[in-house]
């Protein structure tokens, strides 16, 4: 008899504060498992952001710096530049990264900053109560697009991975999701590659994870995963957008 799945040492014993069924928990676990498998928990520094994952520093079992809204890539730059031996990663939602923090994420990629970014895209501001994000789908109802996102007034949703991939300093950019065991395994592979890029001083790596917000979307946890598959993936195609091949 052997244990084939148990909680990783990359997570603390603090229970997640996320809503039931929120896939943040899965993404936390995948990142933490990667830290453990690469044997880097002891030298990792998480840059926590603002949004639902604001308290992620309670959950990852490593040192952490809590950043202001959107500024995590700048804070990560500061940590990594003075402590290049540390493994530095940000964990940011789409309000944080794709709205208030677009300057910081674009410029961190532009500098080829040797950090890893975990970008959790659930097409909504979860923490503040379900407002429209730049990633909100056309027609999607949120508390600040109560009649559905009108693309004439509010624009088309922004595809961050595709944009970041065009920047020369970006070494690895992939979009994944966590809607079933297969996609979860693929997500973990991508996250691991991203950290391996950093371990090899390869430059900027980012994994965008399409995630759920069942409370904000007004769906059950199971239906939320279906929403990702049926509505989000067609607009935000999964796959690798940039791989300079530095991780192996």
């Amino acid at each position: 008899m052997s244990v084939i799945f148990k909680k990783t040492k990359g997570l603390t014993d603090t229970p997640f504060t996320y809503c039931p069924g929120c896939t943040h928990g899965i993404i936390h676990r995948l990142v933490a498992e990667v830290l453990e498998e690469l044997n880097i928990i002891d030298r990792s520094v998480l840059i926590a952001s603002v949004g639902c994952s604001v308290m992620s520093y309670e959950f990852f079992n490593c040192d952490a710096v809590q950043a202001a809204h959107g500024r995590a890539p700048a804070v990560a730059t500061g940590v990594k530049r003075v402590r290049p031996d540390s493994i530095v990663f940000t964990y940011q939602g789409d309000g944080d990264l794709a709205s208030i923090g677009t300057g910081e994420i674009v410029q961190a990629a532009h500098r080829g900053e040797n950090i890893t970014v975990i970008f959790v895209n659930n097409a909504i501001y979860g923490m503040t109560g379900g407002q429209m994000a730049p990633t909100t789908l056309p027609g999607q109802v949120t508390t600040t697009s109560p009649y559905g996102r009108d693309t004439h007034l509010q624009g088309e949703p922004i595809r961050i991975s595709e944009m970041i991939a065009t920047i020369p300093g970006a070494a690895f950019v992939e979009r994944v999701t966590v809607v079933d065991p297969l996609t979860i395994r693929k997500a973990k592979t991508a996250i691991k590659k991203a950290f391996e890029v950093q371990l090899r001083n390869g430059g900027f790596s980012m994994v965008e994870v399409l995630s759920s917000c069942n409370i904000g979307w007004g769906l059950s946890p199971v239906d939320s995963l279906k929403f990702i598959k049926d509505k989000m993936v067609p607009y935000y195609p999964l796959g690798n957008f940039k791989d300079k091949g530095v991780q192996s």
Binding site: R71, G78, V79, V82, E104, H110
Partner: peptide, 26 residues
């Protein structure tokens, strides 16, 4: 030493926050 020309003053002070948080004299 470490020198970074940030993209904005906003980013610069947040880099300072990170570097100081990591224990450097910044």
């Amino acid at each position: 030493g470490v020198f970074v020309q940030a993209e904005s003053e906003l980013a610069a002070i947040n880099m300072v926050y990170g570097a100081a948080g990591a224990g450097a004299r910044v």
